[in-house]
Amino acid sequence: MTAGRDYDSVAVGTVLGPLTVPVTRTDLVRYAGAAGDFNPLHFSDRSAQQAGFPSALAHGMLTMALAARLVTGWSGDPAALCDVAVRFTRPVPVPDDGVGARLDIRGTVTAKLDGRRVRVALDVRCDDVKVLGSAQAVVQLT
């Protein structure tokens, strides 16, 4: 069995998403445990405020994982990512208020590459502010 989106069905300009993901403090604690990253900046308001932030911040790698999820979900193949790169340019504060933060994740196909691969530019925003810079992925299609 093969999985995956057909390369020939995709054009430069094809849009992925949007994927909207709520992120609560519980999600940060769950990610901390799953990833083994116990930097208190990501669960303690006290630590975050000492560092000058309003509340605990989402792990950059959680944000990156959610962006990757948009791409693999779109492609239909959980192993489709050949290359994924981001810069963590803005923090994502996650207040402990029962609501948390909301990430809006979009992608756009920017190039069709050899080997039935495409390049995707990723746009991840929290409160309409981009939180990742130079975010892109190379995706294997079928």
Partner: peptide, 15 residues
Amino acid sequence: LGHADVIAPATFPFL
């Protein structure tokens, strides 16, 4: 899908 066992999401290796 052609994998020998369950596979991890792409960012797992960072762990």
